[in-house]
């Protein structure tokens, strides 16, 4: 058939051009970041995740936090993110170099979590929030993640990691609510999310005009 070479070449080339531009180019351009090392303290930014936090990232993925929460702070000219206090500066590509999978997110049914570890540094807050979001965030429509906790009978001393809830969420006398291993990993991950709390050469801190 006479038009076939034209058709097949076109189908290939149009797609290949985009593949080069939107896959190969980012691969080269964004795939090989190195951390910024402080000359004096030898501290690396962005800091590496702890093993527990990396485990927590998979819990974050497994339970689909990404469907309501983003992890990206837009620059001043592109949104009100900084004015909402979600970060000290926009996030840039290098901020994600430590992640196995980055959860940039496309939805803000819940607030941005890029710097939630800095905005809510208390583990207790996170546990209470995950157990019953309305307790610490009244009116929230976030579902409770009670399956990340276990309610168990106190044997001997109460556990050190039992969480304190108020009625009606409080455990019955003689019982306690303790986060499971997954729960602890998730909170470790959330507490380590401090993506734009430190400056990088390519992204100085920005202050929103009041």
């Amino acid at each position: 058939m006479n038009r076939m070479p034209l058709l097949l070449t076109g189908i290939f080339l149009t797609f290949f051009s985009a593949w080069l531009g939107l896959v190969a180019m980012p691969y080269i351009h964004l795939g090989r970041f190195k951390p910024q090392v402080d000359d004096v303290t030898r501290e690396e930014t962005p800091p590496p995740f702890s093993g527990e936090a990396l485990q927590g990232a998979t819990i974050y993925a497994a339970n689909g936090c990404i469907y309501c929460h983003s992890q990206q702070v837009r620059p001043l000219e592109a949104g009100a993110d900084l004015e909402r206090g979600w970060g000290a500066r926009r996030t840039v590509a290098r901020d994600y170099m430590r992640d196995k999978v980055a959860y940039f997110g496309t939805s803000r049914t819940g607030p941005d979590l890029s710097n939630i570890g800095a905005r809510q540094p208390s583990a207790e807050w996170h546990y209470q929030h995950l157990y019953q979001p309305q307790v610490v965030s009244k009116g929230s429509i976030m579902p409770a993640f009670k399956f990340l906790f276990e309610k168990r009978r106190i044997s001997g001393q109460p556990s050190a990691d039992a969480i304190k809830m108020q009625p009606p969420d409080e455990a019955e006398p003689g019982w306690e609510i303790v986060p499971t291993r997954e729960g602890k990993q998730l909170v470790a991950y959330l507490l380590s999310l401090k993506r734009s709390t430190y400056p990088l050469p390519e992204a100085p801190e920005e202050t929103p005009a009041k």
């Binding site: 006479n2 038009r3 070479p5 034209l6 076109g10």
Partner: peptide, 14 residues
């Protein structure tokens, strides 16, 4: 290459 393919197609009456 695309320009050539187009030229070829036009020449051969496609």
């Amino acid at each position: 290459f695309a320009l050539f393919a187009f030229y070829y197609a036009a020449r051969t009456g496609q």
